[in-house]
Every structure is written in structure tokens, then in C-alpha cells.
């Protein structure tokens, strides 16, 4: 599910410099390069993803975000630093957020909402950690080690004095879409935050 890419593209200025942390197969950077003429780099750890980035002519740098710091990137050296669907897999998401805001003038972060009603229902009724098509892992093998809800994330932003420029909630069906307008933390599946 990558419906968030179009929304992200709206928040990226043409001809700007973009750093994508955990850039995956390079789809987002390739799209931004084509549509917005951005100049970007992606950091990635997975071999197959790195290969796919090379095929797309994306500037990909092999980099383990958990093992290596981002100290090699200068302050405010990018217009936008992006991290899609990976913050919850990081060992120190809060410290990474600091780094993203140091390196980028603005940041865009997306993550799955653990406060979604289906996750809540699953835990409440089954008494087990939620497993779904979207989050298909068991608790012991999931790469998602730091789940949060929209509410959790916004509390962290307030603590860190991070300004939320935009928030967009993504849903994948009409019920959620309707519900998320009133109760985003209950009906939103994925959040996209634009921060500075």
C-alpha cells in the first residue's frame, strides 16, 4: 500500500533536495525526480531494494539506520527529509526524529496507526497482539518494534517542540474514510505528518 506517495509529493517543493531514509525500492525518489525535478538520495539496507534503486537511477547509499549515525549529514543540508513506514522499526525513533529535523529544513514521516479500531478490537477481543494483512507479523518476528498511535506521536511532537505543518490520515475503505474525519486516531490506518 503506497497511496501515501502522492500526498508526500504535494508537500515537496520542485527542484528541492530530498533525503529519503529507508527509501525501499526507490519508487518515491524516482517519482519525485520525474515529477518535481528534485535531487535526492536514499538510504537503504536491503540488497534487493538497493538493486531496484540502481535500476531506477536513484542515488542509493547503503546505510544501516540502526547501526550508523547520520552525523555525516550536515545541518540543514536538505530541504526535506522523508521517512515512510519505517519510524516504528527504528531502535531509537525519537532520536532519529531529532536527526531528521537537524538535517532537513522540513520532514515528512509516515507510520501505521496502532490506535486504529481494528487493532484495538483485535487486542480487546482476542487478547493477542494484532496481526492483519497490513501488519502481517507475529510479535516475536515483527520489524515494527516501536508502535505508536497518532495521539502518541503528537504528544512526542509537543514535547520536542516540533511543529506539525500538515497531517493527512490515510484509510483504505469508505467507513474508515468517513470515521477518520471525526476520530482520526480510531479510523486512520496510516498517518502522514509534515513537520518542521
Amino acid at each position: 500500500m503506497r497511496i501515501d506517495l502522492d500526498i508526500i509529493a504535494n508537500w515537496v517543493s520542485p527542484n528541492s533536495r530530498v533525503l529519503d531514509l529507508g527509501c525501499g525500492d526507490g519508487t518515491l525518489l524516482a517519482q519525485l525526480t520525474q515529477d518535481k525535478s528534485i535531487f535526492g538520495y536514499g538510504l537503504e539496507i536491503d540488497e534487493d531494494h538497493i538493486n531496484q534503486c540502481i535500476d531506477k537511477d536513484v542515488n542509493v547509499i547503503e546505510h544501516d539506520l540502526d547501526e550508523r549515525s547520520l552525523q555525516n549529514f550536515a545541518d540543514a543540508s536538505f530541504d526535506t527529509v522523508i521517512m515512510t513506514q519505517a519510524l516504528q522499526t527504528m531502535r531509537y525513533p525519537d532520536l532519529l526524529l531529532n536527526e531528521m529535523l537537524r538535517i532537513g529544513k522540513e520532514c515528512i514521516v509516515t507510520f501505521p496507526n496502532f490506535g486504529h479500531w481494528r487493532a484495538r478490537l483485535y487486542l480487546a477481543l482476542q487478547g493477542k497482539m494484532p496481526v492483519s494483512d497490513f501488519l502481517p507479523y507475529e510479535w516475536y518476528n515483527t520489524p515494527n518494534i516501536h508502535f505508536c498511535t497518532f495521539k502518541d506521536f503528537e504528544i512526542l511532537c509537543r514535547q520536542k517542540n516540533i511543529k506539525v505543518l500538515h497531517r493527512q490520515v490515510v484509510t483504505d475503505n469508505s467507513i474508515d474514510q468517513f470515521g477518520s474525519q471525526v476520530l482520526p486516531n480510531l479510523f486512520g490506518e496510516t498517518a502522514i505528518y509534515h513537520l518542521s
Binding site: 538520495y41 540502481i54 542515488n59 547509499i61 547503503e62 543540508s77
Partner: peptide, 19 residues
């Protein structure tokens, strides 16, 4: 090699780096 990649990024040059 990472130093090379870092310098290229700082110089805003296109680079792919693999270890």
C-alpha cells in the same frame, strides 16, 4: 569508501554506494 560517498553527497553529486 563511505568517506568518498559522504564527500560526494556534500558536493551534491550523484552517487550509488554499496558495501
Amino acid at each position: 569508501s563511505r568517506e568518498i560517498a559522504d564527500a560526494l553527497i556534500a558536493a551534491q553529486k550523484p552517487v550509488v554506494y554499496a558495501e
